[in-house]
Computed example of a mutant assay.
Amino acid sequence: MRFHDPQLLFLLALLVPLFVWIRRSEGRRPALPLSAAFAGEPLPETLRSRLARLLPYLRLAVLALGIVALARPQAVARESQVQSRGMDLVLALDLSTSMLAEEQGREGRGENRLAAAKRVLSEFIGARKQDRIGLVAFAGRPYPAAPLTSDHQWLQGIVERLDTNSVEDGTALGDAILAGVNRLRQRPAEGRALILITDGRNNAGAEPQLAAQAAKALGIRVHAIGIGSRGSAVIPVPSPLGGTIYRRLDADLDAATLKGVAEITGGRYFEAGDATVLSRVFAEIDRLERTPVKEKVFFSYAELFRPLLAAALLLFLAEMLLRGGWLRRSC
C-alpha cells in the first residue's frame, strides 16, 4: 500500500495534544453533572457514564480517519512484463550428399550427419523463444528455406522436412553465407548472427572469405561448425543390383577456411565429431548469443480513501446521535 499525498499524514501529529487535553479533562470533571449538595458523595459508575467518557475519543477517531482518507491510501497491484530485445539468427545447413554419411563407432554405424544436425537444430530453435530465426539450406547453391520468424513450431517442421534432394549437389559455402547475410542486413546492427553447419569444403560460388568480409561490414557474426569426424565414414548409395550399399567416405572438412570465416566476423569455429559434441556446441552458441533482458514493470492503484471516509462519516453520525440522544445528559 502507498499514499498519494503522504505529507498530509503529518496532520495526525496535531491530534496528539488533543488526545492529551481529553485525558486531562477527564480527571477534572465528573462524567455526570452533580449538584453542590451531592458533590462530595461518590456515585456508582453506570454504563451511560462510561460511554459518555468515550465520546471525545470517538470524535478523535473521526478526525484521524478523515486525515488518513485525505492522504489517499492506495493498494498497489504490481504487473510485470518481461521483454527481451531478442536476436535475429539465421541457420545455414549443408544439404550436400556427404551429409548422409554415418559415423562408425564401436557399436557400428550411427545417426547420419544430416539427421543429427536436424535434431540438434530443432532443439536449439525450441530454446530460443525470444528470437526470430531464419533458415538457409545449401549444397551447390543456397535457397531460403524459411524467412526470419518467431513461429518456432512451424520452423521446426521445415527443418524436419529438409533432405539432400532439395538442391543440386555441391558445397557453396560463400553463397550460403551471403544468403544468410542478405536475410539479416535489414535489421539493426546488434543482435544478429549466422550459424553455418557443413561437413565439406567450398567448391562452388563465391569465396567464403569474401562473403565473411561482407558479413563483417554489416556487423554480423558467423559461427562456423564443422560436422563429422576427421576419419572415414560410410555413405549409403544406390546399388546397381537394387537396394542400397554403403561406400566409405574420407573426411573432406576444410577446417582452416571455416575458422578463418569465423575469425573475420568475430564469431567462433567449432568441430563436432558426433551428435553429442554437436549438442554441446549449440549449447555454447546459445550461451554466447544472448542479449540483455529488459524488464518493464507497470503499476496500477486502487483507491482506498472511500471506505475510510464512509467509516469516518458513520462514526461522526453515531457520535452526534449519542451526544444528542441517549447520552445527552451524560455529556
Rank of each mutant, 00 (worst) to 15 (best):
L194E: 12
L70R: 12
L304Y: 07
L65M: 07
P307M: 05
R85T: 15
A217G: 06
V90I: 10
K259M: 01
A116G: 10
A117C: 04
V222L: 09
I197W: 13
A69H: 02
F282Y: 15
L135W: 13
D199W: 12
G140H: 09
M99N: 03
G219V: 04
S229L: 09
A69L: 01
L60W: 13
P6I: 02
I22D: 02
A37R: 15
Y269N: 02
R106S: 05
D163L: 03
S49I: 11
L121C: 12
A206S: 12
L60V: 02
P44A: 12
V120D: 02
L100I: 00
Q130N: 14
I245F: 09
I158E: 13
I197Q: 11
V82N: 12
E102S: 04
L173V: 09
P144M: 10
L70D: 08
A302M: 09
G180S: 10
K296R: 13
T171G: 04
G273C: 14
E26K: 07
L210S: 14
R48L: 10
E207P: 01
D254L: 00
R230I: 00
S239M: 09
A52E: 13
A312T: 07
L194T: 06
I227P: 01
V181M: 06
C331L: 15
Q186M: 14
Q130Y: 11
S150R: 14
L47A: 15
I158G: 10
L65S: 02
R328S: 09
R183H: 14
R29K: 13
I220L: 03
L43A: 14
L70Q: 12
V297N: 10
V261E: 04
I195L: 11
R85S: 14
I67V: 12
L178G: 02
P307W: 10
A145I: 01
D5M: 06
L184S: 05
L14M: 12
K259H: 04
L184G: 03
R141V: 01
L100P: 00
A189P: 01
G140K: 07
L63T: 01
F270Q: 02
F270A: 02
N202E: 08
L249K: 07
A145L: 06
S25E: 15
A283W: 06
R23N: 11
R72V: 00
F124P: 05
G243W: 07
V159K: 03
L11M: 13
V90S: 06
T257Y: 08
N112K: 05
L258G: 06
L55K: 03
I227V: 15
I264D: 03
S35F: 10
P240C: 04
E107I: 05
P236W: 12
R247C: 04
I195W: 08
P42Y: 06
V167Y: 08
L322G: 04
I225D: 02
